[in-house]
Design a protein around this nucleic acid. Structure first.
Length: 534
RNA sequence: GCGGGUGUAGCUCAGUGGUAGAGCGCCACGUUGCCAACGUGGCUGUCGUGGGUUCGAGCCCCAUCACCCGCUCCA
């Protein structure tokens, strides 16, 4: 499937529009049209029902290690700036980057190292991305090449010190960039703000700077104690949240896949450290099944465990649920959801201050005065189990899903072109639960009382379902119009309806028709749209 | 951020300096008894945006924005 066809359909039928389109658009922002908003809402509501409101804490869920609670939360988008300092986003999201004008490569300023060397009367800084002995070797080879020396002439290079960071270099005109052949090809370091900055207060200045959240998770962590104290939940339990997040992506691309404003569906699941591996496994498998049940094909969906060296510094296990989007090269997958075992990193950070890894331990990062680099709240976020009299910091399992990425995956998956009697039928094969319109109601022709009967049925169904009424044009055309927006059922009032009160039920995917009493339509639709068990 | 391509009606696209077009879609009326029927009529454009050259610009030049492809980046 070509992506342009889907993008065109999305615009033509009102799933997705470019943001601010009449003003030329805005890179990285998208609007959901009348059908798109229904689709995305259905996905978010399916998630909320399946994960939160539909969860029965009295019954052991399939494959769950034990009973557990689930509750929801809706926290603010703008939070105290200290939240992002302790979470690590503030430091990680403020990168200084340098560009190489020769190689067109971009580097993180603090990740380039190099050595000062003098030869043939010139002193230059030979830069590399490699550290340690490898870095020494590489800088020597590149210095030899630059000065046109043979390997045996290495003693003509006078090294003026060990590998040091590029951040110690003020004058870039003597820097030989990692993949350049000439000096001074690096631009001055430029700051990349990956978090959206804003000002709180009408008279606010720079000291009133705050950030739009880059993830919803932190709103859950900072409310952990509030939820425990107010809701009678006991560990293990999860807090779920759906909401907008914002990141200044350097290169927004691939339709809505990498947007600067996007919506997340996140769960932070709190459990006893000893049980956390089992819970990690549980969420990892359950979340994968959820996508399968809503209709993503197993051939394009995969569950991928991160390698050890891919794990964040705090994580003891992460898996991605990935989809083979059509805009990616064959064999490549894009992330829909990450399930991470985050240990006690987040709660501890908000207690003690921003943490860094020191060997096997996480310790509070300190500044040059030996004080915490980013001070925590100082509040005790431990959990007390009054049965066992145990007090501990819970471990956290985080299934973090992208609502827009999920929506895009369902759109890609649904798009089908079929040959029907020599003509191309464009059909969106959405799972009935997420289809924007559940059923279309048609009078076969506009006479003999058929419109009246159809309108009455429409009015009755509309109270409970998203249904659509269409009496325009030939019946075949009306079916095809609904196929294009993925309506799973067409219900037609015809001549026979007037005699025996039965209607035609037409299935989108099989094109098969069956008759059923008009009085049973509601019940049939209910059964058709019922969630699968998970 | 770099290089290449594209931008004209709701969609797909034609239009190489001289009166803005086609197909599809959409709307109305008639017709129409189950898979994009037919007839008649109708709506639709700051030619992405801003500036320049020219008697005259959709077309040439400059800038800018957006989208696509390839690099780069992706906590």
């Amino acid at each position: 499937m070509e992506m342009e066809k889907l993008v065109s359909l999305c615009k033509r039928r009102g799933f997705l529009f470019q943001s601010s389109e009449i003003y030329g658009g805005l890179n990285g922002f998208w609007d959901y049209g009348p059908l798109g908003v229904e689709l995305k809402r259905n996905i978010k509501e399916a998630w909320w029902r399946d994960m939160v409101s539909g969860h029965n804490e009295l019954v052991l869920a399939e494959e769950a290690p034990s009973l557990f609670h689930m509750v929801g939360l809706d926290s603010s988008i703008i939070m105290h700036p200290q939240v992002w300092k302790c979470s690590g986003h503030y430091d990680l999201f403020h990168d200084f980057m340098v560009d190489c004008k020769e190689s067109k490569k971009r580097y993180r300023h603090d990740q380039i190292r190099g050595r000062w060397v003098t030869s043939r009367g010139a002193e230059i800084f030979v830069a590399t991305q490699v550290g340690g002995e490898e870095g020494d070797k590489e800088t020597e080879q590149r210095a030899l090449k630059y000065f046109n020396l043979r390997s045996k002439q290495a003693e003509e290079l006078a090294w003026n010190g060990p590998l040091v960071s590029l951040t110690t270099v003020a004058d870039f005109s003597k820097v030989l960039a990692p993949e350049a052949k000439t000096l001074g090809t690096l631009t001055a370091p430029r700051e990349f703000n990956l978090m959206f900055k804003t000002i709180v207060g009408a008279l606010g200045g720079e000291e009133d700077a705050a950030f739009l959240r880059p993830e919803t998770a932190q709103g859950i962590f900072v409310n952990f104690k509030n939820v425990v104290d107010s809701s009678r939940v006991k560990i293990p339990f999860g807090i779920a949240q759906v909401g907008k997040s914002f990141r200044n992506e350097i290169t927004p691309r691939n339709f809505t896949f990498r947007s600067r404003e996007f919506e997340q569906m996140e769960i932070e699941f709190f459990c006893h450290p000893a049980d956390s591996p089992k819970w990690y496994q549980y969420w990892r498998d359950r979340r994968f099944r959820w996508y399968l049940q809503l209709g993503l094909a197993s051939s394009r969906l995969r569950l991928r465990d991160h390698d050890k060296d891919e794990l964040s510094h705090y994580s003891c296990g992460t898996a991605d649920i990935e989809y083979a989007f059509p805009f990616l090269p064959p064999g490549e997958f894009g992330e829909l959801e990450g399930i991470a075992h985050r240990g006690d990193f987040d709660l501890r950070s908000h207690m003690e201050g921003k943490l860094v890894r020191q060997g096997e331990q996480l310790v509070v990062e300190s500044d040059e005065h030996g004080k915490p680099r980013h001070r925590g709240s100082g509040k005790d976020l431990k959990y007390f189990n009054d049965q066992t009299r145990e007090r501990f910091i819970p471990h956290v399992i985080e299934p973090s899903a992208g609502a827009d990425r999920g929506t895009l995956a369902f759109l890609c998956e649904a798009y089908q072109e079929e040959q029907v009697e020599g003509e191309t039928r464009l059909v969106m094969k959405f799972h009935p639960r997420i289809a924007p319109v559940k059923a279309a109601i048609f009078p076969l022709v506009n006479r003999d009382g058929m419109p009246e009967k159809a309108q009455a049925l429409y009015g009755e169904l509309k109270k409970e379902f998203a249904v659509f009424f269409d009496d325009g044009g030939a019946i075949g055309r009306r079916y095809r119009r609904q196929d294009e927006i993925g309506t799973p059922v067409g219900i037609t009032i015809d001549g026979q309806t007037l005699q025996d009160s039965t209607v035609t039920w037409r299935d989108r995917d099989t094109l098969q028709q069956k008759r059923l009493p008009i009085s049973q339509v509601k019940e049939e639709l209910r059964a058709f749209l019922a969630p699968a068990q998970s």
